[in-house]
Design a protein around this nucleic acid. Sequence first.
RNA 1: CGCGGGAUGGAGCAGCGGCAGCUCGCGUGGCUCAUAACCACGAGGUCCCAGGUUCGAGUCCUGGUCCCGCAACCA
Length: 482
Amino acid sequence: MSNYYVTTSIPYVNGDPHIGHALEFIMADVLARSARQRGDTVIFSTGTDEHGTKVAQKAESLGKTNQNYADEMSKQFVTLAKALNISNDRFIRTTDKAHEQRAQIIWKALKGDIYKAKYIGWYDIKQEEFVSEAQADPARMKPDHPQAYQKLEEDNYFFKLSKYSDQIREIIEKDQLLVTPKTRRNEILSLLREGLDDISISRPKNKLEWGIPVPGDSKQVMYVWFEALMNYITVLGYPEHDDFKHFWPANVQVIGKDIIRFHAAIWPAMLLSLNVQLPKQLYVHGFITMNGEKMSKSIGNVVAPQDILEKYGVDPFRYYFLRHIPSYDDGDFSWDAFEAAYNNELANELGNAVQRTLVMILKYQNGVIGDIPPAEHDIAKYLEALKLCHFDRALDEVWEQVRGLNQYIDEEKPWTIAKDGDMEHLREVLAYQASCLLEIADLLEPFMPDTAVKIRNVFTEGIVRPMTETLFPKTEVAPKAE
RNA sequence: CGCGGGAUGGAGCAGCGGCAGCUCGCGUGGCUCAUAACCACGAGGUCCCAGGUUCGAGUCCUGGUCCCGCAACCA
């Protein structure tokens, strides 16, 4: 029995929650539920990232105050998490007073690696932001261009990231910070081999006031990324709270592939500078495409998580994204693929296995199961997959059992046994079926918690309790699905 | 030659030196307990291209083509 701490990255609130956020939520949720299932004490934290330029701009364009806008958006993410049956214990907002205060404590603790310098770069006057050398349009660097950039300099605080390149590289090479999957590990290692440069970690207040004030400098606010990363420990009450002492370092931090750099370079450097342990594992998931295309508002192919949830319900949603989006790669969503998975795998294979077992016990034994010996299949591969965040493979393993059960029923032919009148043998066969389903329910628990409960309700206590409704009703038209 | 990843039957993936495999879809047959569900069998692949190493290469090496991600202020 140990403590287990898992986090998601905290979504930036400049847009509505999308499928990618949902994916990350449910993946982390599987880890949390699975840890609880094996008896660990778990803290599962998620939240929202709410400061910075984009949020301020968005709020302004909507005629709202920054805080009001952030409040509304944050609420949407809370709603999504609820709708997805996410079992998070904490929900941190970077505008929480506690976070702001602790961020300032952290800043002070990092003092030794922070210095003030001038940032010089091309500045886009209209957009009110610096443009990186790589992204800048060369034509606009010439002064006679109508929208010419300005060469501008401003005071910034910098963090000595460069100092930590080698140390972080070694830690990742030794898998003390395990980066999963391997390809992501390679990616970050090559980045670290090139060496990291120091990063700017503040903004002048006269350009952007929507941020946490830099302690001791009323003219600067913290750069949003730098401060957002701190949420993983501020939520535990760094530095003095017991939760921090007992639950840090995190067992797994779940992130998307677009933010590896921040989590496998900047964040570890901050922790090293604080003299705090690094998380044990960083799991990096991919992106979801829609019918093979990138989802974007301009293409107009964005599917909101709510659309799917309304039509099919939570567990099928969780199931599809955990099994059919490759855990180590990008994946695709299409209504066709979703429906196929729903009908074949959930309704036909699993739902029907429950149904036929249930009906036979009712029909042949008046609902009495009798003694149920525990079915003990080898779940080593399932556990291994789960440990490696290979959610898709873990579910493949569960379906091996579902399929195995259907084969078993077909081979034993309980209906024939019933006709032949060998009631004791029949009882053994049916009890074994029930036992398999109970085991499947256990394995499914982290992935489809509601379904697991429903299956257990039917078969526990030696007597069948029929379901009030079909487990996964099949239908083409929008079902009120379970 | 900035860095990293990928290219395997209609779709999604596994295999990483020894007869090319899995799931879905498709076809045929079987069964009847069941959500027209279940089970069995079958068709379908020059494993991106060109060279090379090897008795033997999706699997290793070299070169090329195409796709994807990252590339110090966008979180």
